[in-house]
Design a protein around this nucleic acid. Sequence first.
DNA 1: GATGAATGAGGCTTCATTCAT
DNA 2: CATGAATGAAGCCTCATTCAT
Lengths: 219, 219, 219, 219
Amino acid sequence: MNRRKREQLILDAAIQVFARQGYSKTSVSEIIHEADVARGTFYLYFKSKKDIFNGLLDRFLMELTRNVAKINSVRLPAEGDLNEHFRMLSADLVETVTRNRQLTQIILFQASGLDPSFDSKLGLFYDQLTRIIRHNLDAQVASALFRPLPTELVARCMIGSVKEIISWWIQNDQFEMESAIRGVIDYLLGGLMPMALFEAPAVVSQEPKPVSRHDVNLH
Amino acid sequence: MNRRKREQLILDAAIQVFARQGYSKTSVSEIIHEADVARGTFYLYFKSKKDIFNGLLDRFLMELTRNVAKINSVRLPAEGDLNEHFRMLSADLVETVTRNRQLTQIILFQASGLDPSFDSKLGLFYDQLTRIIRHNLDAQVASALFRPLPTELVARCMIGSVKEIISWWIQNDQFEMESAIRGVIDYLLGGLMPMALFEAPAVVSQEPKPVSRHDVNLH
Amino acid sequence: MNRRKREQLILDAAIQVFARQGYSKTSVSEIIHEADVARGTFYLYFKSKKDIFNGLLDRFLMELTRNVAKINSVRLPAEGDLNEHFRMLSADLVETVTRNRQLTQIILFQASGLDPSFDSKLGLFYDQLTRIIRHNLDAQVASALFRPLPTELVARCMIGSVKEIISWWIQNDQFEMESAIRGVIDYLLGGLMPMALFEAPAVVSQEPKPVSRHDVNLH
Amino acid sequence: MNRRKREQLILDAAIQVFARQGYSKTSVSEIIHEADVARGTFYLYFKSKKDIFNGLLDRFLMELTRNVAKINSVRLPAEGDLNEHFRMLSADLVETVTRNRQLTQIILFQASGLDPSFDSKLGLFYDQLTRIIRHNLDAQVASALFRPLPTELVARCMIGSVKEIISWWIQNDQFEMESAIRGVIDYLLGGLMPMALFEAPAVVSQEPKPVSRHDVNLH
DNA sequence: GATGAATGAGGCTTCATTCAT
DNA sequence: CATGAATGAAGCCTCATTCAT
């Protein structure tokens, strides 16, 4: 068995145990028992319990970042079914999360507050995600596809919404993924689009939107 | 010093220390040192470390529940500035969170995955929150103030949005609370309201919303 | 059993085990087994294995310093049996070393190179000893009782001589302490005194040296 | 690369690492890293960590024994500068110690108490050294060059003196070797020689001692 | 001969909890 | 009620040594 395979073996075992018991209550003993390797072998591949968790964090956050970047890398089409458009783009994200159900659970919802290194890594991850989404929102606003908005704030709300739905899904076996995805996208978009795109354009140009709806600008 | 006062003394000390270091990294030693009571005294008032954390969870989640219930207990006014309306209603929630900045941090973002009992308590809390919000949303939808929506899903998104913003605020000292609150409310509402309420009502009744926007119903 | 007694109990056990096996090969497990206390109790009294050893170092080196200071604190009498004079003064040192045979063994001959903190403590100890002895030597030289000498060097030689004899004694059960002490003092003095002080030059060639100077023969 | 060279390679690496960190704190990993050989290779040449250290002990103690034997193998000249005589004889010892500064440090001052096998080897070494020196002292006493003395005791004192000075030198960069050597020899001799051998009795009271006896001043 | 992945005994330390005073 | 000394299970990690390739 070569180095890569053995490392993966231990990583997989760690995911299982971390998912089952959380980071703090997981001991290295349990990981090596699950992986069926000797104690020393664990430390041959990972410097510490923190280290292996950091490894999981890195891998998974990077994959998620790629997924989110993909969704936000495309210019929105001026017409067509936006919901369907985003649904297709988000397929990879959904697939990643589905394939790593347990890991998602651990990393998104339990990694906070365990260790400064985890926290800072997560903080950077969310910052980066925010930046990506915000960048896209800014572009849409600039092209008047979306109404003026405090885009950083909205990006964070979107992230929070998606996280919460994922959390709900993970803990709920009767969750219907398909309709939920459409529902979330619909809701997230609904808050962004100028009415004009939905309704008769004529009205829009006649009077400005009420001040209360776009006078908010953070920073 | 009577029983109640001493218990509160220890609880306060525990909040301080849990807030500083999180649950797992906090030892009973640190709590009793902060509270300046003997080791045995701690166990006179609390069954275990888990027990005192459960107590904190209960108190804080109950207060948050009351705050959220208040926001959602009022029928929306048919006219007037909705944003301002919600801003006033959410004042207590904002106050609670501001006053317990550290506790919020621990309980909302670090209590997950530490212990099954905490997890189930948090799960119930979010379920209850969802139920409250959803009940209100349903009412608004019924009275056509909001467009048809998968209300449970939307309620969860709202919770997620608020949590994420709170998390951002906690970790960011330059956060401008005032404008953020308005921004979040604006965004959350924007995703819910039928265009008709903003623009000329006439249009709304003339043609239904696009199918793609409200065919999503979970459960 | 009060704090002091319990600490002494553990210290005594530690001395036993350290003496038997040396510092490195002694485990905390063995100390607590010898002391018959629980593992946690050890750490209630000592921060670490290093800490308890440091405690032993401190106590013992301080006692030795006092012993040596005593020997060197008195001005030498202009006449009388110098050997006997020093023998009386060194009684306490001999008693300390005899009473702490095992501790002497560990601290003087095995504490070097185990840990920087031990090394620096030992270094300071020997420096202080050297200073004390040198100070006395300087005084004797000034009053012409001793011949001019590189006093620091000589002080170190004296320390080395005494250490080596102690080491020999510790490892040798048939060692005759009494005669050895007289022999060492005689030898150490012999290298310091101007000939004139011992005898009238003329006499030397006429009759043998005084009995007191060469009646010491070990083995 | 042949067997002998590779063994020497590992031995040299071991010296480096042992010297830097002492025996206990040196791991086989560090030795093989320094030697740049594989882990298994180490065990091809040495049975264990203890084994390689024993090898170093043997080699070095044997060289020291030779050096000391050389100093003591010669009959003292009836006249001439004894100090200079010994200084020349001790050149090799000085050279050995200087060339193996680190090894000296480890073997003379840190090898004690690590392992029974090391202890017994060191014990034998010092016994042998004592025997060599004592044998020579006995001869000098017999020929009345030295005054009657407990020669074994004195031999040990001499060894202790030299060890202490070496230890001082190793830890002190500003040590002036040249004058120290003369000083030590002067002091060691001064404690042994009958006054008569140094000067004509009559002279003593008339003029100061010969320069060679007190021109040594460190610092 | 040479390699280095694998082993597992054993070391140090922490800490929630108990209980005699 | 209050105290705090004592407990010991359990956690993390190291490292000398082996052995299949």
